[in-house]
Amino acid sequence: MTPQLTQSRPAQQAAASLPQRRSRWTGRTRRDFFVFLALALPNLILIAVFTYWPLINNIYYSTLDWTLGSATATVVGLGNYVTFFTDPGSADVLRVTLLFTVATVGGSMVLGLLMALALNRKIPGTTFARSAVFAPYVLSGVGVGLVWLFIFDPVYGALSWVLRGIGLASPQWINDPQLAMVMVIVVYVWKNLGYCAVVYLAGLQSLPKDVLEASALDGAGAARRLWSIGLPLLSPTTFFLLITTLLSSLQAFDILKIMTPSGRGTNTLMFESYLQAFGGYNRAGYSAAVSVVLFVILLVVTVVQMRFVEKKVHYS
């Protein structure tokens, strides 16, 4: 304590004669300054080095023609982007990304809302069911993907057995690119719809009861009450879910990689960026360019969200 006192005393004397700004640099603020650095700096440095720096680096790498593992690289400027936007394969990547994103976002939100309506009842067992439907969301995508891959197996899978039971032959889920897409969408929706259900359920339970009761007295049926009163009131929840599921669908990787390792028919931007660098092509520069394209899309979604939230929601 003694050294601090001797240090702060001249500071206080100086404070009397100097302007306000100077006087705030007293012993306590100064100590707080260093305490703050000691507490927050490790985390801030980690975030800077492993989150911000890679973003900048990625943009730099995207201007290189560079084989992963090679010591030399050639600067090609926007060459990788030109390749990406002119290659016919990229049109497929964008189409696959769009299809996967729209189907998974739409699927998990619609089914999530239906599940939330099923859970929104005052009967015993809803708490258990709520936890149960949320569970897949926290499980390993790799484990979940393998379980479903077995179910979808055209010969030994449980699904093929069910299909045979009704006289149908199982399609080749994995080998047909279009069916592979259907398969990963189903599994992704299965894993994520519990999240939408729980968020929608919270939204449903915070709806003003008097409005719904009034309309029930006016003779509005359940479906009509949901459509013309519930859904408009739920729009903030819907918007929140739209953004979060959009962001996570665009970044989906685990299920795609484990169920369709080659990426044929399921190479979204995220997966394509991985495949280009680590899937045997070793095209580091090109992969970085694909990541940057993905990042720009994610950024646009985030900015839209922030602008919207700024207008609609007050943080207190």
Partner: peptide
């Protein structure tokens, strides 16, 4: 940083 997807950072982090 919460909004920056970790997925787009894997290549630079791998190289580092």
């Amino acid at each position: 940083a919460l909004m920056v997807p970790p997925q787009v950072a894997v290549l630079p982090n791998y190289i580092l």
